[in-house]
Structure formats: C-alpha cells, structure tokens
C-alpha cells in the first residue's frame, strides 16, 4: 500500500497540546515540511517562545532551546553567531514578539541576523487565558480590555511586517494566513522562502501568520476564521512587505 500522506520527519511523535481548531498545528507542520524538504533537520536549531507554543521544543525533531519571554531573537542571535553554518529559527506569538520582546525583535531585524522568524499573530494572549495583545484590534474585547480596546488609553495595534519592512536589515517580510487551502499553500511557500534565504545567507526573514484563537475568542474554529477574515485582514493585509532576496525558489 502506498503511503500518500505522513507526518513530516521534523515533527516528533508527541501529540500537540494545542486546543481543537488552533492553527499552531498547521504552522508547525508547514515549518517541519520545509525543514524536511530542505534537508536541514540535522543542522537546525529552533528557539521556542513563552506563550502557547512554549512547548514547541517537544514537537520539532531538531535541537531546540526554550527562551525567556520575548528573548528568542537575542537567543537566536547568540546561537547563530556561534554556529553560523546552522539554521536557526524562532517561533513566537504576538505578546512575545511585539510586546515584551519588541526591542530584541527590532534589533535582531536591523542587524540583519541571518535567521528565520515565524510570528503567529492571533491578536490575543492565549496561554494566560485571553488578555489584550499588542496586536488586539481597536474595540476588541479581551479579559484585560473588557469594554473593548480603547485606543485612547491602550493605544493602537502594531503592524509588525509594516514596521520591520522599514529597516534596512530586513531581507524578507511577508504576512500570510492559514484559513484556506489557497492561503496554506501561500504560507508554505513563504515559510520555505524564509528558510531558503537563511540557507543561502541572505539575512533576516520574518513570516507573520495572521491566526486565530477559537478558545479565547469564544468561537468555533470556523467562526474564528470568519472573524479573522472580517476583522483582522482589513487591519493586517496579507502580502509581501519586503523582499530583498533575488529570485524565487
């Protein structure tokens, strides 16, 4: 019997702890497929964040480090400087990357560290149970914005791809989603390009995945995707924000 579909080698056999309908599983798989296809598992080291994907170290078969909250880009910098021939990626959520770790994010980007950053933006703190994130939308109700995010007191959401694309050190920045087959395929190509850039020594690449949190949004997975399309994508348009790499893979 021919095997037509299997788990990527770069994922371990450990079952995900993620909630039903959470897109983390899809993105993990896309990263793992990329690692398999590029044949780089043996020299890849991933850096997991603090957030829902804190235990990503159990799911990827490559060597893994668990960083402090927000510090993954600094840890990845130290790692990559020590091991310039290895492939280093971080996998971070919105609180980790764009709030507590924004300083490390911007500086790793502006230095043009030759790393790959996978950024999951679901507009909420998932692991701690649904608090306002730096990317929560104006008016969005969360545990810590119970009357809706009031931009007069809580400020505006941060558009990470737009912000980072202003930095000369950034090679590639693309925002994707994983809510449809078409978008998953686009996301896969983007992630693969972000890793390929690193393999080819082209510098800093970030893929922002506009995502959902059915549990903390209080929606079914399908409702969550619809809410994302209706509310997040207008604020966070999909597309390539910066591409200094030459040629496609």
């Amino acid at each position: 019997m021919a095997i037509v579909f299997s788990k990527p080698h770069a994922l371990t056999d450990k079952p995900f702890h993620y909630c039903p309908g959470c897109p983390h599983g899809i993105v993990h798989r896309l990263v793992a497929e990329t690692i398999d296809e590029l044949g780089i598992e043996g020299r890849t080291v991933g850096v997991a964040p603090v957030g829902c994907s804190v235990m990503a170290y159990d799911y990827f078969s490559c060597d893994m480090i668990e960083a402090a909250h927000g510090r993954a880009p600094a840890v990845a910098t130290g790692l990559k400087r020590a091991l310039p021939n290895n492939i280093v990626f971080t996998y971070q959520g919105d609180g980790d990357l764009a709030a507590i770790g924004m300083c490390e994010t911007i500086h790793a980007a502006t230095r043009g560290e030759n790393i790959t950053v996978i950024f999951i933006n679901n507009a909420i703190y998932g692991m701690t149970g649904g608090q306002m994130a730096p990317t929560s939308l104006p008016g969005q109700v969360t545990q810590t914005s119970p009357y809706g995010r009031d931009v007069k007191t809580a400020g505006y959401p941060i558009r990470v791809c737009e912000l980072l694309s202003t930095l000369d050190g950034v090679t590639f920045a693309q925002r994707v989603a994983v809510d449809s087959v078409k978008n998953v395929n686009i996301a896969k190509r983007a992630i693969k390009k972000a890793f390929t850039n690193q393999v080819e020594g082209k510098g800093y690449s970030i893929i922002e995945v506009v995502s959902t949190c059915p549990t903390n949004w209080g929606m079914s997975p399908m409702e969550a995707f619809q809410w994302m399309r209706d509310n997040m994508l207008p604020y966070y348009p999909l597309g390539v924000y910066k591409d200094k790499s030459e040629g496609e893979n």
Binding site: I65, A74, T77, G78, K80, E104, I106
Partner: peptide, 25 residues
C-alpha cells in the same frame, strides 16, 4: 564575535544562545 547588544537583557540572552551552542560565551 563582539556584539554590542541593544540592552543588557538582550546581551545575557545572546550569551544563553551561544552557550547553548556549546561555545564559551
């Protein structure tokens, strides 16, 4: 490598990353 970090916080985490790689940092 000499790297002037963006903060003391970043610097110590870069040390953590390099040390994880097995080098003296």
């Amino acid at each position: 490598t000499y790297l002037q970090a963006e903060s003391e916080i970043a610097a110590i985490n870069m040390v953590l990353g390099a040390s994880s790689a097995g080098v003296r940092a």
